[in-house]
Amino acid sequence: MSQYLTPPPDYAPRKPRMKVPKGAWDTQIHLFGPASEYAFDPDSPYYSDEVSAESAIAMQDQLGLARSLLVSGGGYGLDYLHLEHTLARYPDRFRGVIFPSAQTDDEELARLHAMGVRGIRFVSDRRARNLPRIQPDVAARVRQFDWPVHFYPHGIDLVEYSDALMALDSDKIVIDHLASVPAAGGVDQPAVKKLLEMLDTGRVWVKLSGPMRCTDEEPPYPSVAPIASALVRHAPERMMWASDWPHVNMVGRTMPNDGDLLDLLAEWAPDEADRERILVTTPEALYGN
Results as ranks from 00 to 15, higher is better:
Leu5Ala: 13
Pro7Cys: 07
Asp10Cys: 08
Pro13His: 01
Gly23Asp: 05
Gly23Val: 04
Ala24Glu: 04
Ala24Val: 01
Trp25Ala: 00
Thr27Lys: 02
Thr27Gln: 04
Phe32Ile: 08
Pro34His: 14
Ala35His: 05
Glu37Ser: 12
Tyr38Leu: 05
Ala39Asn: 05
Phe40Pro: 00
Tyr46Leu: 09
Ser48Tyr: 01
Asp49Leu: 13
Glu50Ala: 15
Ala53His: 11
Glu54Pro: 06
Ala56Thr: 04
Ile57Trp: 09
Ala58Glu: 14
Gln60Ser: 13
Asp61Ala: 09
Asp61Ile: 08
Gln62Val: 14
Gln62Gly: 10
Gly64Asp: 09
Leu65Arg: 01
Leu65Met: 08
Arg67Trp: 05
Ser68Lys: 12
Leu70Met: 08
Ser72Leu: 08
Gly74Arg: 02
Gly74Gln: 07
Asp79Asn: 13
His85Ser: 08
Thr86Gly: 02
Tyr90Asn: 09
Asp92His: 12
Gly96Phe: 09
Pro100Leu: 10
Ala102Leu: 02
Ala102Cys: 02
Gln103Leu: 11
Asp105Ser: 12
Asp106Ala: 13
Glu107Met: 11
Glu107Ser: 13
Glu108Gly: 11
Leu109Trp: 03
Ala114Thr: 13
Gly116Asn: 10
Gly116Val: 09
Val117Gly: 07
Arg118Cys: 09
Arg121Met: 07
Asp125Thr: 14
Arg129Leu: 12
Asn130Thr: 11
Pro132Asp: 01
Pro132Glu: 04
Gln135Trp: 09
Pro136Met: 06
Pro136Lys: 10
Val138Pro: 00
Val138Gln: 05
Ala140Gly: 00
Val142Glu: 02
Trp147Ile: 01
Pro148Tyr: 04
Pro148Asp: 07
Pro148Leu: 05
Val149Met: 11
Tyr152Arg: 14
His154Gly: 14
Gly155Ile: 04
Ile156Ser: 15
Glu160Val: 13
Glu160Tyr: 11
Ser162Asn: 09
Ala164His: 03
Ala167Gly: 13
Asp171Ser: 10
Lys172Arg: 13
Ile173His: 01
Val174Trp: 01
Ile175Phe: 07
Ile175Glu: 06
Asp176Val: 08
Asp176Leu: 12
His177Met: 07
His177Gly: 05
Leu178Trp: 00
Leu178Val: 05
Ala179Ser: 10
Val181Met: 08
Val187His: 10
Val192Ala: 12
Leu196Thr: 09
Leu196Cys: 08
Met198Thr: 12
Leu208Thr: 12
Ser209Ala: 11
Gly210Asp: 05
Gly210Ala: 10
Met212Asn: 14
Arg213Thr: 03
Thr215Gln: 07
Glu218Leu: 15
Glu218Gln: 15
Pro220His: 11
Ser229Tyr: 01
Val232Tyr: 07
His234Lys: 12
Trp241Leu: 11
Asp244Glu: 09
Trp245Gly: 00
Trp245Pro: 00
His247Tyr: 06
Met250Thr: 06
Thr254Ala: 13
Leu261Lys: 10
Ala266Lys: 02
Ala269Glu: 01
Asp271Arg: 09
Glu272Thr: 09
Ala273Pro: 00
Arg277Ser: 11
Ile278Glu: 11
Ile278Thr: 13
Leu279Gln: 01
Val280Ala: 02
Pro283Ala: 03
Asn289Lys: 07
